[in-house]
Design a protein around this nucleic acid. Structure first.
Lengths: 344, 344
DNA sequence: AATTAGCACTCAACACATCCGAGTGCTAAC
DNA sequence: GTTAGCACTCGGATGTGTTGAGTGCTAATT
């Protein structure tokens, strides 16, 4: 998009976007006149608005109504006109209060999601940390029956995954010892990504006589690793979305879409930028075509790990929400780094 | 409610309830005539309907409309008229497919919730197992930094809880050993309910010199125990509720109510029966006054442990859903019992 | 050439009137 | 006790004005 808009057009566009974000009603030339810093007649504004509409930056719900920003209008606003507002103290306090000292990643993220949803009055998405270089920190095997054990895996990012595993032989102390020997020497400290099925097979081959009894356990560990390597998506405050008139129509579809995390995951993981804003149809999912997303990555120990973001109507208060999301991702990243990497 | 309705009134009431459950539209005397097994004129049916209405079993949305069952009408139907339909093979297959062999409680319940929501086209609630006699099965302490450790607690019901704990001294091997000594001898095997703060204090008092360094860790363990003792509520398929016209009006309120689990928890834990049906205003929450709940307990190892259920409009297909919920609770109970208590 | 006043025009939203028909309650006959 | 018949009710759909915010265009003004 060329940046060739006259100063006045820019001011008008910005004012329309901001007013519309506030009110949700189409903006007419008269009411706009009162808000604009310069003194021009409504007729002039109408002319400018007509040109902005011709450029595709504004649209009209119907002939006799005011204008609302088009998707490109929002885009232009965000890229060129918006100046981010600092996070106000009240929000900052709320965040501090909700998150406190942090804790394990899952709690932390659930708190972060809740507070973000609450603060923005939108739905909040969050994914658990899952970087390339995540390692296995600990593996535990807890017998819970004569032939069943619970396997627990803890990653270097603080994610805990567990699974029940049934074996054909009864679980004895020597079996446990052999399991711990193998896992401690071969698996703990390895990257999650390295523990795929083929690696397990070569590992199993080297076990000799023990292979038979250990195999199902190791297979389960491999599954756990696979599980842990993949980010979990959390969603908070979906009900907030029901409050927006413009989403009401496809509320059901939208909720249904959000429920099954697959496509959302695809969208999130395609985000390579620091803060990513997707407006309406800019994403490829029909169900989200009336919605905007603001997504931001958080880093743990210097590595890109997970994502936090909000989903709401296109009429989001970007100037406020973008800084909010960024602030929260920074905070989460910092807290997680401190919890998981402090080696002072 | 007296059981003094004439046979014919019973048939009529049953037919109205069943038709209304199907269509969601008020039922008129004419259309009812075609459905009823006996041959009577619409006028007769009208007379009977008027009497049923006088008894409070039916109500009229407005004068010139058909009748719909009142809450007491549903109640009478469920208690006296309904004959539960066997679970059809298709549903049974779906359940088997979704749940498979089971696994840990959390996965199992999430699967159960999903399939229940899917099967019933309602929202499904589920709580993790948390009985009186749940015990601590294992406690692990995993250093994740020089002064932080992750504490992990596994209960006899298979619930895993974790927490990050920071200590003031650096974490050394001797500290770990002392921690494991204390926990293994004093805490593992104890009931969750016994590990309250006061018990921890007397325990701490007996530690002598170690108290200082161990105290924060033990306090964290106590918190974990408290956490684990309390059932977590899961909710699935909330979006299903958006499909019902009669819920649309207060959809936002309803979702908001479900989101914050507190009151729902109160409702669930007050359920002492095998299968409990709450119709409309029978519960004390305004937000649920247009909804019905079907709740059922599942037992693990012979003890009442958790609850599964559905939430939907009052117009639920009770004859189908009650058996479905019961079947699923039985299955979940059986699988969890097998995973957690098999000592053959 | 840009701006503005003025004006005719558009169209959603609202109010109001009308009609329709499903369904009722009642009465009188069976 | 049951039924046919009928007057009556009332929500929902349909139709018709009316209103008013907002537009686009033209012609006058700066």
């Amino acid at each position: 998009m060329e940046n060739e808009l006259s100063e006045r057009k820019q001011k008008i566009l910005a004012a329309i976007v901001e007013q519309y974000i506030r009110s949700g009603e189409p903006i007419g030339s008269k009411s706009l006149m009162e808000v604009l810093p310069m003194k021009v007649s409504s007729a002039t504004i109408r002319n400018e608005m007509a040109e902005l509409a011709a450029l595709g930056l504004l649209e009209q719900p119907h002939t006799s109504a005011g204008r609302i920003p088009s998707h490109s209008g929002y885009r232009y606003y965000i890229d060129h006109l918006m100046h981010a507002r600092e996070l106000d103290d009240d929000s900052r306090r709320k965040i501090e209060a909700a998150i406190g000292e942090g804790g394990d990643p899952e709690h932390l993220l659930s708190k972060a999601g809740e507070v973000l949803a609450d603060l923005t009055n939108c739905a909040a998405v969050s994914t658990t940390p899952a970087g390339e270089s995540t390692k296995i920190r600990r593996i535990e095997m807890v017998p819970v029956g004569s032939r069943t054990a619970m396997l627990v895996l803890l990653t270097s990012t603080g994610i805990l995954k567990s699974r029940i595993c049934r074996v054909d032989t009864s679980i004895t102390v020597p079996l446990l010892e052999r399991f711990y020997n193998v896992t401690a020497s071969q698996l703990v400290g390895r990257a999650l990504a390295d523990v795929h099925t083929t690696a397990m097979q070569t590992l199993a081959a080297s076990l000799g006589a023990d292979a038979f009894s250990l195999l199902p356990l190791l297979a389960a560990v491999a599954e756990l690793a696979r599980d842990a390597a993949q980010a979990d998506i959390r969603l908070d405050g979906q009900s907030n979305l029901l409050g927006y008139r413009e989403l009401e129509e496809n509320a059901y579809e939208l909720m249904e879409f959000l429920r099954n995390g697959e496509p959302l995951n695809a969208l999130i993981s395609s985000n390579k930028e620091d803060v990513h804003v997707l407006i309406g149809k800019e994403n490829r999912f029909r169900q989200l075509s009336n919605s905007s997303l603001i997504l931001a990555r958080y880093d743990v120990g210097g590595e890109e790990s997970g994502t936090l973001g909000v989903i709401g109507p296109t009429r989001l208060d970007y100037a406020k929400l973008i800084p909010s999301v960024r602030y929260l991702t920074d905070l989460v990243g910092r807290l997680l780094t401190r919890s998981m990497h402090d080696e002072e």
